[in-house]
Amino acid sequence: MTATATASHAPHAPRAARAVLKAELRLFRREPGSLFWVMVFPTLLLVILGSVPSFREAQDDLGGIRLVDAYVPVTVLLATIMSGLQAMPPVVTGYRERGILRRMSATPVRPSAVLGAQMGLHGAAALGSALLSLAVGRVAFDVPLPRQGVGYAVALLLVTSSALALGALVSALSRTSKAATAVGSAVFFPMMFSAGVWLPVRAMPDALAHVVEALPFGAAAEALNQAAAGDWPGPVHLGVLVLWTAVLTAAAARWFRWE
């Protein structure tokens, strides 16, 4: 699903793409459920966990940081998972199921414009939610902002791309929006686990951590931790993210059907 730019056949492609984005943004704002899980829930989880006194005590097995510190990157990853994997696939699959993409094929605009708008909006929502989590962590729980800001941003953009690519693949493989929800949920829990929602990757046994770090959200968790601590994220972690994004995007493009 590399095809966000294919609407360029039309002489007025920018105007059409803007109109599609505007319409999809309106529709996105009319989905309170999605908005809650993507924009509110990750930060809410951080607030709940941060309210537990023991989460605000330094932990030796986490290298002296507090659990609430370790959970900020986890909730950042949760935002990308919620948006890319939970919220987006049923929408896109539903558009195909209802013939909305097909109807658009009969106009000068390619249906890829809708797909591009959906990915852009869910990507932006994930990033917005991540920033909210960072801000609330800083203000409410004194979690320091990432000290390697650029490295953090790079890792965050890469993991958001992976999440959207994974969501696109779920849309591609699901024939109905119900199926997309089901497949999304099946993939959701392993991804949540690998992101460290139940047990931060730092606190996992070595053997498990190695496996998890080969997965996109495990690699992203480590990359974000490194950037938060002030280091540039390790090239292996970033490489894992790039590889996953490329493979998932290629698979989604291979299997996606417009009708």
Partner: peptide, 15 residues
């Protein structure tokens, strides 16, 4: 130059 009404196609429900 050609406008189409397709069989069994819908629009976004909340549009």
């Amino acid at each position: 130059v050609l406008g189409a009404q397709l069989q069994e196609s819908e629009l976004q429900p909340k549009l």
